[in-house]
Simulated scan of single mutants.
Amino acid sequence: MITVHHLNNSRSQRVLWMLEELGEAYEIQRYERNPETMLAPESLKAVHPLGKSPVLTDGELTIAESGAILEYLADTYGDGMMRPGDEPQERIDYRYWMHYSEGSLMPPLVMRLVFEKIKNSPMPFFAKPIARQIADKTQSTFLAPQIQRHLDFIEAHLKERSWFVGDRLTAADVQMSFPLEASVARGTVGNRPAIRDYVARYQARPAYQRALEAGGEYAFA
């Protein structure tokens, strides 16, 4: 039996979506974030040494990292579903977006969130103005331009097509869903209709809706 070790409000939601698209049976082992630190609980380390989610177990196999999990599911259970076609360019594009999501797009988004939390974290009164100044400067001179460049790049790509690879949904779309949902939810996307339409398109899919119901409340802070 496939088990998804599912942390609330996390990347593991897209593993549930992938399984629903494939029509595979699975069970969920739930974990809740620490309400103060918002980090995963220590109990996840019993499943994987890093104690992070998502983690998937399938019999004797334990697989971590979103991209690796999605590729494993597509290769093992997909029977041609959720994978690119035979065209070389589609295979290249598929591999690119599978890696781009976490390798290029997520780092500045995570850094932006970290610096926002620094600005609002408890600290001695005399340190707060300095911390805010550093955070604001980092945001305005480095992170914001980087994020906007990435979103412009994605917007241009999605203006020409309905899905990231070829003419149908693949695991690359599932992999790209988390950073784009976060960007829409936090107002980062701005006036980029292709991204907004794309997110609305896949969120309307029955498999996505079933995954939401299975995973429980899902929101971005």
Rank of each mutant, 00 (worst) to 15 (best):
I2M: 13
T3W: 04
H5S: 12
H6S: 02
L7V: 08
N8T: 09
N9F: 06
S10M: 02
S10Q: 02
Q13F: 09
R14M: 12
R14E: 10
W17C: 05
W17E: 01
W17A: 05
W17G: 05
E21Q: 09
L22H: 03
G23P: 02
Y26E: 00
E27R: 13
I28Y: 08
Q29Y: 02
Q29V: 05
Y31K: 12
E32A: 15
E32W: 13
R33A: 09
P35Q: 06
M38H: 14
P41A: 07
S43V: 01
S43A: 13
K45S: 14
K45F: 11
A46N: 07
P49C: 06
L50A: 08
G51H: 00
K52D: 01
V55Y: 08
V55I: 12
V55K: 07
V55P: 03
L56V: 06
T57F: 04
T62F: 08
I63V: 13
E65A: 04
S66T: 15
G67E: 06
G67H: 03
A68K: 03
I69Y: 05
E71Y: 01
Y72M: 05
L73E: 11
D75G: 01
D79A: 12
G80P: 09
G80S: 08
M81R: 14
M81L: 13
M82S: 01
M82N: 00
R83Q: 13
G85T: 08
D86N: 14
E87R: 02
Q89P: 00
R91F: 02
D93I: 01
D93M: 05
D93Y: 06
R95P: 02
Y96Q: 15
W97F: 14
E102T: 11
L105V: 11
M106W: 13
P108G: 04
P108T: 03
L109V: 01
M111C: 06
R112G: 07
L113G: 13
L113F: 14
V114W: 05
F115H: 06
F115W: 12
F115G: 01
K117C: 03
I118N: 03
N120D: 14
N120Y: 14
N120S: 15
P122C: 00
P124C: 01
A127W: 12
P129H: 06
I134R: 10
I134F: 13
D136R: 05
D136C: 00
D136L: 00
Q139R: 10
S140R: 13
T141S: 13
P145G: 05
Q146D: 07
Q146I: 03
L151S: 10
L151K: 11
D152N: 14
E155C: 09
E155M: 09
E155P: 09
K159I: 03
K159G: 08
E160R: 12
E160H: 07
L169W: 10
L169E: 05
T170C: 03
T170S: 11
A172M: 08
V174R: 06
Q175A: 11
S177L: 15
E181A: 11
E181S: 12
A182T: 13
A182P: 02
R186L: 15
G187L: 10
G187Q: 10
T188N: 06
V189R: 12
V189P: 04
I195F: 12
R196G: 06
D197A: 15
Y198Q: 07
V199P: 11
Y202R: 04
Y202W: 14
Q203G: 11
Q203T: 09
Q203I: 04
P206C: 05
Q209P: 09
Q209L: 14
A214L: 11
A214C: 05
A214P: 06
G216W: 00
E217M: 04
A221F: 14
